[in-house]
Each structure stands twice: as C-alpha cells, then as structure tokens.
Amino acid sequence: MKTKNNTFNQRITLDMNANKRHQKDLGLDIPENYFASSKKSILEKTINQKRGKVISLSKKIYAWSAAAVVLLLFTLAIYNPTSSGDNIEEDVLIASLFTEESNIDVFLEEFVNNELLTEDVFKNN
C-alpha cells in the first residue's frame, strides 16, 4: 500500500518538464495555450455534453413512451373484438394526456400510412 501511494505521488510530480524534454530533444512544438483550449474542448465533449444529453434523452424517452402507449391502445382497440367505439375514444383521450398534440399528429399520420393503408386496402377498393 505504502509503495503504491509513494509511486502515485512520484507520478504526480514526474514529467513536470515533459514540454522542455520533447521540445529540446525532438524539436516538437505546440500552439500557444494549447492545453488550456484542449482541456476546455475535452470537458465540453465529456462532462458538459453528458449534462446536456440527460435532458434531451429524458425528453426522448418521454415522447417515445407516450407514442408507445398510443400505439398499444390503438392496437388493442382495433383488433380487440370486444372493444366498443366508446372505449377507443376514451383510450385515445387518456393517451393524449401523456403527450403533446403535435407528437400525436405526427405519430397518427405515420401509423395510418404505414400500418393501416396497406396494399390490400387499395386492392379491395
């Protein structure tokens, strides 16, 4: 334990002259204030981005959950022979309370186009 601790302390203070060593021996240089700007950029892509993402992800989950509820209720209502017309309206009403109107419109349009307006429907007509 003690050795590990000492090694870590040595590591912290080690390579303090890494810049000079690389510049002097290998002729490698870096732009002025590079490490400060690089640090900022890394933090934006890690800690700060994560904070931003949490909000957007939870919003997405909420929207998708709402859409899933609508889909489930629609499916049950349409394919359930015991379901009455009143129940469908009630189910849609409840589902609509969990999501925004624009989301429902988009979802319904996609659902009707992709799932209900199949080739068979047009053939029968």
């Binding site: 890494a18 810049n19 870096i30 690089s38 890394i42």
Partner: peptide, 21 residues
Amino acid sequence: DKAFVKLLDLYQERLYWHIRK
C-alpha cells in the same frame, strides 16, 4: 466529474506527448 477534471490536469500533457510521438 470533479475527479475527472483532476485526472485531465494530471494526464493531459503527458498523454499528449505520448500520442504525438
């Protein structure tokens, strides 16, 4: 997050030179 900032301070330069070579 706080510890990561410290880790970045400790390793940014030395890893940069390691990578650069």
